[in-house]
């Protein structure tokens, strides 16, 4: 088994580990770097549970090799916190009860972060479209959408 040594910047900190070359980013984070806020969902990139940001853009860490993103900045849910406290998106999720069993929450919050980072006004339809690739098996989408709506400067349009 071929091991390779990689350095990834995880939530602002350089982390160097030797691990098998075939490790996905998800497995590398969990098994080599002990980053446990990234969760395994489907292994096919469909469910969004394992979402991380790579240089600010959302990716399914189960279908990206760690080696592919060597040297890049990887942000997990914890990285959206501010000085060890919850960040604004996390706060909004708490305030709106946007988390039931919680398994989809890291991916949802990171998807919301990517969506909101454009700074553009969004309506509910656009928000629903943007999180279409993140599945909540509790089906608690309404509260999740409301949490995101509360962070959009001017929310246009009606509920759809």
């Amino acid at each position: 088994m071929t091991e390779i040594t990689l350095t990834l910047n995880i939530n602002g900190r350089d982390v160097t580990r030797a691990a098998p070359a075939h490790y996905s980013l998800l497995r590398w984070l969990r098994d080599a770097a002990s980053v446990f806020d990234v969760k395994y969902g489907c292994g096919e990139g469909v469910c969004g549970t394992c979402t991380v940001l790579v240089d600010g853009a959302a990716a399914s860490s189960c279908i990206v090799l760690a080696a592919q993103v060597a040297g890049k900045n990887v942000t997990t849910l914890v990285g959206l916190g501010v000085d060890g406290e919850l960040g604004p998106i996390q706060e909004a999720f708490v305030d709106h009860g946007a988390s039931q069993c919680g398994f989809c929450t890291p991916g949802m919050v990171l998807a919301a972060h990517e969506l909101l980072s454009s700074g553009e006004a969004l309506d509910r339809a656009q928000i629903r479209h943007a999180i279409q690739g993140n599945l909540c098996r509790c089906t608690g989408y309404q509260a999740i959408v409301e949490a995101i709506v509360s962070l959009v400067p001017e929310t246009a349009g009606s509920d759809s």
């Binding site: 990139g45 969004g48 979402t51 790579v54 853009a57 959302a58 990716a59 399914s60 279908i63 990206v64 998807a111 990517e114 943007a130 279409q132 690739g133």
Partner: peptide
């Protein structure tokens, strides 16, 4: 194509 994550990569 797929979702945003797929298209990003």
């Amino acid at each position: 194509v797929g979702n945003t994550r797929v298209r990003n990569i």
